[in-house]
């Protein structure tokens, strides 16, 4: 009867090996660098000291970490809030329209952070930006710049994150049984209440998934905060780049990266738990 053999156990080694090669080993190297001894003006030599971490335990870096998390979470929240109704409407469109919109979204994905950053900083500038258009239309008195600033930064991050949010939400939203909403209609729910009492709660897990993806994605953005934000909006990613490339302080950069990784892992875990809890409990 047991002619059917179970999947060989060693098969599980393949994903494990992948994880090790592409994630664990680089992470181990980063960990070892983060505790290495820095040679001022030069590189670093192997060692074990927690100086880099100690330097992070200051209100200054605490604030930067908070800023990073807040900026990424804010961008992720805005993206999900915009992407969810957008995707629900998209999934209700006829097939050709859906394909067209998805193609456009994929095209936006092909734009790099650099292109988006420079385009937006031109578009929002005083001399060549939308300010001129608004002044010309008489909406504002004088053309003005909208960059650098939090608004410009958020705009850039959302532009970057929105297609991802839509693409993550699209499959579960389009698979949603339309009869669920119709049943709610018959039971007395207006279309808006159907959205809030059925569509959103049923899709809580994918919504959390989209949030996590955009959050992690924007947390890693290091060009846009420099191009579109003020120094106080600089995220940890910017400082990591700065330390690693311009200050040649690899141990400190590695220490920041480790902290950022752990913090984001913790937040991702919490978000996913919340999303799953919504679908089950």
């Amino acid at each position: 009867m047991s002619a059917h053999r179970a999947t060989p156990a060693w098969l599980a080694l393949i994903p494990a090996a992948w994880l090790a090669v592409f994630f664990l080993i680089p992470f181990a190297i980063m960990l070892s660098v983060s505790v290495a001894h820095r040679v001022p003006g030069g590189f670093f030599e192997p060692g074990f000291e927690i100086d880099s971490y100690a330097r992070l335990m200051t209100p200054f870096f605490g604030r930067i970490l908070m800023t990073s998390v807040a900026v990424a979470a804010g961008a992720a929240a805005i993206c999900v809030v915009l992407a969810f109704p957008f995707t629900v409407i998209l999934a209700g469109m006829r097939a050709r329209g859906q394909t067209l919109v998805l193609v456009v979204l994929l095209a936006v994905l092909s734009l790099s952070e650099v292109i988006i950053g420079f385009s937006l900083s031109t578009l929002l500038s005083r001399t060549a930006g939308v300010g001129n258009l608004l002044a010309w239309a008489g909406l504002i008195a004088e053309p003005r710049a909208y960059t650098p600033g939090l608004f410009a930064l958020m705009l850039g991050l959302c532009y970057l994150g929105l297609p991802y949010a839509v693409l993550v939400l699209y499959p579960p939203v389009s698979r949603l049984d339309p009869e669920l909403g119709e049943a709610a209609r018959i039971m007395g729910a207006s279309p808006l209440r159907v959205f809030w009492t059925v569509t959103v709660p049923v899709l809580r897990a994918p919504i959390a998934g989209a949030f996590v993806l955009v959050f992690v994605f924007t947390l890693g953005a290091y060009l846009l905060p420099q191009l579109l934000g003020r120094p106080r909006h600089w995220t940890l990613s910017v400082h990591i780049t700065d330390q690693a490339i311009f200050q040649s302080n690899l141990p400190f950069a590695a220490a920041m990266a480790v902290v950022l990784l752990l913090v984001s892992l913790a937040l991702v875990g919490v978000s996913l738990l919340l999303g799953r809890g919504g679908a089950r409990a």
Partner: peptide, 16 residues
């Protein structure tokens, strides 16, 4: 539909 005060059971049941 939501103002008709009907009850309906769908083929898929459409339970939440």
């Amino acid at each position: 539909a939501h103002k008709r005060d009907f009850g309906m059971v769908f083929q898929s049941l459409a339970l939440f």
